[in-house]
């Protein structure tokens, strides 16, 4: 059985790490979670980013957050990636699979995936 005792152990392991994380946070991944996003499938996208960032060990520099509707409901699920150096990148019609790819190629590799961005859609 899962118990609150078990949580104490996890807490002890984590405390040092958390201090580090608060100090940096250079990259922000923002997932739209209003009615439009939720209806289009944003929940699994968000969870894929949260888990993917943790699995890749990127937690110290990357923060995953939620936002409301940004006004392009027809392209939901929408994900915005803010990094220190580049311009904001807006991904549209995201899926959990695409989220994993974005972590691999963009967040880790530094190369945005052009074909998933809003720019590619409008052409």
């Amino acid at each position: 059985m899962k118990s609150l005792e078990e949580l104490k152990a996890i807490k002890a392991q984590m405390q040092n790490k958390v201090v580090l994380r608060k100090a940096s946070g250079e990259t922000r991944i923002v997932v739209g979670m209003a009615t439009c996003g939720i209806a289009a499938g944003a929940r699994p996208v968000l969870n894929a980013f949260v888990e993917g960032v943790a699995e890749a060990g990127l937690g110290e520099n990357v923060i995953v957050t939620q936002t409301g509707c940004i006004g392009i409901c027809q392209y939901e699920p929408v994900v915005e990636v803010y990094t220190k150096d580049e311009e904001k990148v807006t991904y549209v019609k995201m899926t959990a699979e695409r989220a994993k790819e974005v972590i691999e190629k963009h967040i880790k590799g530094g190369k945005p995936i052009a074909e998933y961005t809003i720019g590619a859609l409008k052409k």
Binding site: L7, I10, K11, Q15, V18, A54
Partner: peptide
């Protein structure tokens, strides 16, 4: 139980 560790941490 967690004190200052956030519930939003992936491990939690």
């Amino acid at each position: 139980v967690l004190g200052d560790v956030s519930l939003g941490e992936p491990e939690i």
